[in-house]
């Protein structure tokens, strides 16, 4: 039975001195997939700005806007109403040999290469010793929480996998980057998924304060989503927004501004199950 979730994602910036112009791109629009249907989405910017939309290379809906009147604050409120289902999984029985195929390695090259953020790390286990790639995923999904402690503040948005790995601490972004690094090293194509996680009781109408979240999709015959941060299956409580090679490709908000000085950022995400 599908869930209907409402998400409000607000971001506000406070600048110490006046900003004369800023240019931004938001990737906050949930995407339509066979398992997820976006009923409505709206992005508001204050000070008022016209918003231009386009679909990027990875298929993510991007909202671009600029603010050209001098301002000391910037608020972005993204509101979505989404219907989610438990993802229907395809056949996941690829063998290690299947993953060695030239065609696959060529077509999924972007999800097999290291990046600035998904850089090599050395786990104390060898994924390839698992019987099948699917077993490897199950193993990894469990192992990550034994290796890394969830500790907000231990890393920042620019931290590569190796940093969190050394500290053995991080947030969902680090769990995701580290998992991607280990998977790609083992030859399993894997991509970064960003979105929202509903972590309430499931009671209809109850508003829950959440956060933007990230998890992994690995290719083991088909794409298989899993959530190494909490080890739970990806289900109706996950809302998918963007996919990419790493955080850089999906960052919810990126932009540049001129004239201002250091800032304070506040981000709140609230989710409500409507049905």
């Amino acid at each position: 039975m599908a869930w209907r979730l409402s998400v409000t994602h607000s971001t506000s910036f406070q600048y110490e001195s006046e900003v004369s112009a800023s240019f931004n791109e938001a990737r906050m629009t949930p995407v339509n997939t066979p398992d997820q249907f976006v009923i409505s989405h709206d992005l508001k910017v204050n000070p008022f700005s016209t918003v231009f939309s386009y679909k990027d290379y990875f298929g993510t809906e991007v909202k671009a806007f600029d603010v050209q009147t001098p301002h000391t604050y910037l608020e972005i409120v993204s509101q979505s109403l989404v219907e989610t289902n438990i993802p229907a999984l395809g056949n996941l029985n690829a063998s290690w040999d299947d993953l060695q195929s030239d065609v696959l390695k060529n077509d999924l090259r972007e999800y097999l290469s290291f990046t600035e953020l998904v850089n090599p790390i050395t786990p104390p286990f060898e994924l390839r010793l698992q019987d099948t790639p699917l077993d490897a995923i199950h193993f990894l999904n469990k192992a990550m929480r034994e290796q890394i402690t969830y500790l907000p503040g231990s890393t920042n948005v620019y931290s590569p996998a190796s940093e969190a790995w050394e500290k053995r601490a991080g947030v969902c972004q680090d769990f995701t980057h580290a998992s991607l690094s280990i998977l790609r090293e083992a030859g399993i194509p894997a991509r970064y998924v960003s979105g929202y996680l509903y972590n309430g009781s499931g009671e209809i109408g109850e508003q829950v304060i959440g956060e933007s979240h990230s998890w992994v999709e690995a290719w083991v015959g088909h794409w298989l989503p899993f959530d190494p941060t909490n080890g739970n299956p990806v289900a109706e409580d996950h809302i998918l927004v963007a996919r990419g090679r790493d955080y850089h490709d999906v960052s919810p908000l990126k932009g540049i501004f001129s004239g201002g000085r250091s800032r304070k950022i506040e981000v709140t995400v609230s989710l409500t199950r409507i049905a």
Binding site: D56, K105, R109
Partner: peptide, 18 residues
């Protein structure tokens, strides 16, 4: 052309897609 050749080119700009 192998896709891997293109996607690893430093001049392949994903922001030019579309």
């Amino acid at each position: 052309v192998p896709k891997s050749l293109i996607v690893t080119s430093e001049h392949f700009h994903r922001s030019a897609h579309g």
